[in-house]
């Protein structure tokens, strides 16, 4: 079983002084997966990715990537992985082509293979016509694509992407994910951290991080099924009052607000459809629209985090 894992961590931990960023993380990634790391800001996603990319040493536990230990054997790992940091980490004063060329040089990609590969990556990232433009003068989306192209120059087996689409417009995001899907189909393992729940849904499996460790780690379908009860979407005339009234009701497990919409987790959606109307009418709140629905990643995420926070608070 172990041989089928491409990334495996054992009680991985990293502290910065008194602050524990990653705390006893046990993570398993199979070859060819798109593995999504989700979690609130400060959950330890970036630190985890740096630990796995062997550019930071853990303060506890260990990690094996592509069969090598990140502390004792970082060099073979570096040749097998690509790492794309959250920040733009290329040379802004070099052109697109010069950046690709430089990384080809340091990875010792040489000869005709190198020329052919650079051309292919430029084409792949749709940057061919911008090859002579300085990286600093590219748009945010194009910079991300260039960064991805640079991490692919040595055809890595695993790619780590730290919030690659943060600050990118929706059209570029979609295009970027198109490229990631192509890589996935080529059999490359992708480990990606993201704050976007729609991106989490595209992953083979997601790990939900909270305060340095994994709360849940499963397929998006199963994670969504972990929420308690059934979900109802409700548009009341006065959402604030409706929320107060319903939160006190014994049948209601959890209430989440999305603008004018309330999303209620109840024990039984069928019966709830009946009594919600009357309960709100008694307080003069009108139901504009109401229907049973399936939980999205976002509800599951908030519900799991809130559950974890509540259990720590008690």
């Amino acid at each position: 079983m172990t041989s089928r894992l491409i990334i495996e961590t054992d009680q991985l931990a990293r502290a910065f002084g008194d602050v524990v960023a990653v705390d006893g993380l046990c993570l398993q990634v199979r070859p060819g997966e798109i593995f999504g790391l989700v979690g609130p800001d400060g959950a330890g996603k970036t630190t985890t990715i740096r630990l796995l990319a062997a550019i930071m040493d853990p303060t506890g536990g260990s990690a094996r990537v592509a069969g090598f230990d990140t502390v004792t054997e970082p060099e073979p790992i570096k040749r097998r992985i690509g790492y794309m940091a959250q920040r733009f980490n290329l040379y802004g004063d070099l052109s697109v082509w010069e950046n690709l060329n430089f990384f080809a040089d340091v990875f010792e990609v040489a000869g005709s293979e190198r020329r052919e590969r650079i051309e292919r990556l430029l084409n792949f990232a749709r940057l061919t016509e911008f090859r002579d433009r300085r990286a600093a003068h590219l748009s945010g989306g194009m910079q991300k694509k260039l960064a991805l192209a640079c991490t692919l120059i040595h055809t890595p087996e695993i790619i780590f992407l730290d919030e690659p689409t943060t600050g990118v417009d929706p059209v570029s995001r979609r295009e970027f994910w198109g490229i990631l899907t192509d890589l996935h189909l080529e059999g490359i393992t992708l480990v990606i951290s993201t704050p976007y729940m729609d991106e989490a849904e595209r992953c083979s499996r997601v790990g939900l991080m909270y305060q340095g460790s994994l709360v849940v780690c499963d397929t998006p379908e199963r994670v969504k099924a972990m929420t308690r009860g059934e979900l109802i979407a409700l548009w009341p005339s006065d959402p604030r009052r409706a929320k107060d009234i319903l939160a006190r009701h014994g049948e209601v497990l959890e209430v989440q607000t999305y603008g004018d919409q309330l999303r209620l987790f109840v024990r039984d959606a069928g019966s709830a459809m009946g009594w919600i109307d009357t309960a709100l009418a008694a307080h003069g709140v009108e139901v504009l629209e109401m229907r049973p629905t399936r939980p999205r990643m976002e509800e599951a995420f908030i519900s799991l985090i809130q559950g974890r926070m509540a259990s720590e608070g008690s």
Partner: peptide
């Protein structure tokens, strides 16, 4: 400062 050191650290350099 520019973060490129981090990028260089994942290369064989």
């Amino acid at each position: 400062e520019l973060g490129t050191l981090e990028q260089l650290m994942v290369t064989p350099l």
